[in-house]
């Protein structure tokens, strides 16, 4: 089955008099278990596409299906529920709630989902170790470096084991070693749980892990490159 299907997605932003193209007739199919990079220079439409797929933004026209279910016609409440239960997000702009500790941020989605406390604790402890933040669970975002914060955000996105992870430039603030650690984690989840990954990036370190790289420019898909991963 397809994890993500987009047909003729268009999105135009209006900035005063000026019209800016966000998405320009994007057709896209991503298989379940896919590991896809969206590659484009800044302003190419990566974030806009991820927001549309994630049910955060409605396109001007076109249709979107997630796991066979049409989502561009869903109401706000249904979209929120879908995001909560089916998608893990790493946002480009802003990721952590300042008054919560690293562990609480990681557990946030699970807590809203209603996962029992002991189960949450077990999973957050494991994921803290996997992203290399063991012992930092009680720190608040302001007490962590940019890279550490980014890892907390990634941990939150994957800890609830969503079917689809949408990550917007997840390695932006990370050194090579940590970036590679994260990618290994993604790959492992992808291979063992069949989690589908769509990662917006222009980071070569990330693209090396991708089974497929979709190149975008000015809101258009310009190239779809399938790879045998190293």
């Amino acid at each position: 089955m397809k994890s993500v299907t987009c047909k003729q997605l268009c999105k135009t932003y209006h900035q005063g008099e000026v019209e800016v193209i966000g998405l320009d007739h994007v057709d896209l199919e991503i298989n379940e278990g896919g590991f896809v990079c969206l590659s484009a220079p800044s302003g190419g439409g990566k974030t806009t596409l991820l927001n549309a797929i994630g049910g955060l933004d409605t396109p001007d026209s076109g249709k979107i299906w997630l796991a066979g279910e049409r989502i561009d016609t869903l109401g706000k409440g249904e979209l929120a529920n879908m995001r909560l239960h089916r998608i893990g997000f790493v946002f480009q702009a802003y990721n952590l709630i300042p008054v919560l500790t690293a562990r609480e941020n990681i557990e946030f989605v699970m807590e809203v989902q209603g996962v029992p406390a002991d189960e949450r604790e077990k999973r957050s402890t494991a994921i803290l170790r996997e992203v290399g933040l063991e012992g930092l669970g009680d720190r608040r975002p302001a007490q962590m470096s940019g890279g550490q914060q980014q890892r907390v955000a990634v941990a939150r996105a994957i800890v609830s084991k969503p079917a689809l992870v949408l990550a917007d430039e997840p390695t932006a603030n990370l050194d090579s070693h940590t970036a590679e650690q994260l990618m290994e984690l993604f790959v492992e989840l992808n291979e063992h749980h069949g989690t589908t990954f769509v990662i917006a990036t222009h980071d070569q370190r990330v693209m090396r892990y991708a089974k497929r790289v979709i190149h975008m420019l000015d809101g258009k898909v310009v190239d779809d490159e399938r790879r045998d991963v190293a």
Binding site: L56, M82, H85, F91, Y94, F108, V112
Partner: peptide, 16 residues
């Protein structure tokens, strides 16, 4: 504003 947006984006309900 931003963290409220984040919570909503992650799927917390407006009622919460």
């Amino acid at each position: 504003v931003r963290e409220i947006g984040l919570m909503l984006a992650l799927g917390m309900t407006p009622r919460s």
